[in-house]
Write a protein that binds this DNA or RNA. Structure first.
Lengths: 351, 351
DNA sequence: GCCGGTTGCTAAATCGTGTTAGCAGGGCGC
DNA sequence: GCGCCCTGCTAACACGATTTAGCAACCGGC
């Protein structure tokens, strides 16, 4: 059924030259190898007439370069997150004529191993190993055999892998600063993590880092957090419960929710108690999930730059690939991307 | 840096046989070609000791089969939709030892052409051409040269391509039936599309089909729709506006929102008018977006089976690939997947 | 007339595998 | 002793490109 592809041999024949010559011309090495102008034009014309395209599989076998990279993540479906990260990676890849393989491990070790093998079997030029929430990961052995980059994850223990992560500490600083700028100094409560750093499970890297940034800024301003409530899972339901418990005891001046889903629950709890956002209580949050603009008032939040993370990962991977092909060692740098503030309507000035 | 992969030649040498023999054994053709048991065991042992894995690129070149499929969509990031569809496809592919290339066209023709070329250059075994919202698409010429399946889209004009789509008409029927079962017969309004089929822009295939199903059931039950309001875009804001306009004129008994985002807006408008869901007004919707369980009361909605759509697309594509390799014509069937009802708390019984 | 250098191209090997035709050797029948 | 069949394996080509070494022809100088 498929009308067999045109091969280099056919182009060469039509142009009346050898395959070698045709290959050289099409690789742009005519000058270098002193191919005459007329022959060059004939080859180019023949290729155009036959609508010739290189067979990438063959080139891959011969050169070892497939212009293909693997994108492995623990899951591709949780939240919108994945979509934008993949989108960023896919677009950055396409601009460089690379194609992306994608796969997911669901956090299972054997799937991970199998997937990385399947990709190496197909001779990918490099691998992006992504996590859907920021965390420290055990680096799979299969990643050390070629260029690789960690995305939204940092290596557990020492490692020569480069990684790309959002600047969560900076995000914490921004959130605190937003409240400070609006004049809030008292009655500021956290929803999602305890008020002290040791009240956060350390696996939730984003949590401790955001909290670190928050503390940093408040301490610098002489402001003390009024309290904080842990949520075992950062879902609306848990945010709702945690906020209700808080409101039964006191009426806060401002809430810092550890993500937008928690904030959705917090809005509902505030509504239950007849409190208005932002006139009674201000709310800041993290992530910039689409829902942040759907709720009323629109939520001020510190955005996870998913799209940029995806793009950056392929850029860093390309640098690793270059350094690999030059025989030099992996770069092993950590790239932190800023998390931009989305100022909306959930924070009011306090006199 | 990469410790060069073990090749078949090395396995053969270690086992003391020719490459041909090693190849045959590892392909499981020992019986067929009368390879002695002892030789067979030696080869297998050698392969295991060296941790040999076939080079998929080489196999691809030799056999023309790369165990790779392309997933091309107009966009991979809009809504959670894409994530689940891709997840379904990725998992179904992995179970069959296939890897997925992904790419997005952003609806631009030249990107689409380039992407399909890039995939064909890499000798993909087949292509899934996905749309992120159900619609009729012009079939790209590049899809007719090999096995391909349309996902969430139907071919414009006649075509031999198979397609996989959600059963939107059935979804419309389900939504109507949910209200009928709860005793609603009067004051039922639509938010998102006009009450009559001709009040829907035909590009919005989901809209006309959902409405078709709704009409079918209501007509069969002798029930007439009280009205409907078009939303130019199915977003919360537009749903909010449309619902407010409606509420200024009348108080409905039930709302059928054309998707969950519109329903979010409708909830807000109802709240503005002091109307309670579901005691004052019942609400049914479509899609089962995550937000449906975040709002209060939880939304009864007819779910888009994204994950299953992705899986099904791979299954159908595999059948097309089989029929292609047998030299028979493409199957050209349309597969409609049921959209399940998620009964939650937004519909109350009317006496 | 010989040597050396340039110009312009090609033959042939290579990447790692799949596959087909065929070879060597042994056993058997007559 | 010859022919034939079977068993068990291998040689050799193919897939579609890249790349290196080298060949033929011409030119110029002495």
């Amino acid at each position: 059924m498929s009308p067999r592809r045109v091969t280099l041999a056919e182009v060469a024949e039509r142009a009346g030259v050898s395959r070698s010559t045709a290959s050289l011309v099409l690789a742009g090495r005519s000058r270098e190898l002193r191919i005459s102008h007329s022959v060059e034009q004939q080859v180019i014309a023949a290729a155009k007439e036959l609508d010739y395209r290189r067979n990438a599989v063959s080139v891959g076998l011969r050169t070892g370069k497939t212009r293909t990279i693997g994108f492995v993540s623990d899951t591709v479906a949780t939240s919108r997150l994945a979509g934008d990260m993949i989108k960023g990676a896919v677009e950055a890849a396409r601009e460089r004529d690379l194609l992306l393989f994608i796969g997911e491990t669901e956090g299972e070790e054997d799937l991970e191993v199998g997937l990385l093998q399947a990709m190496h079997d197909r001779q990918v030029d490099g691998i992006i190993f992504a996590s859907m929430f920021t965390r420290a990961v055990e680096t799979p052995a299969a990643l050390t055999t070629g260029p690789a980059v960690l995305l939204n994850a940092v290596p557990k223990g020492q490692s020569t892998l480069s990684s790309v992560v959002p600047d969560e500490i900076g995000a914490g600083r921004s959130a605190a600063q937003v409240l400070l700028d609006a004049g809030h100094r008292d009655g500021i409560h956290l929803i999602g993590v305890g008020p002290r750093i040791r009240d956060v499970p350390p696996e939730a890297l984003a949590g401790v880092q955001r909290l670190t940034g928050i503390h940093e800024v408040f301490t610098g301003a002489g402001v003390e957090l009024a309290g904080g409530r842990i949520c075992s899972d950062w879902q609306p339901e848990l945010g709702y419960e945690a906020t209700r418990e808080l409101l039964r005891e006191t009426t806060p001046s401002a809430l810092i929710c550890l993500n937008d889903r928690i904030a959705v629950g917090a809005y509902q709890a505030l509504d239950d108690f007849g409190l208005k956002v932002p006139s009674d209580v201000s709310v800041v949050s993290f992530d910039d999930h689409p829902v942040a603009t759907w709720i009323r008032p629109k939520l001020t939040t510190i955005a996870l730059p998913h799209y940029e993370l995806g793009r950056k990962a392929v850029e860093v991977l390309l640098r690793e690939m270059d350094s690999d092909s030059e025989g030099s060692a992996p770069l092993g740098e950590t790239h932190r991307l800023p998390m931009p503030v989305r100022l909306r309507d959930s924070v009011a000035a306090r006199s």
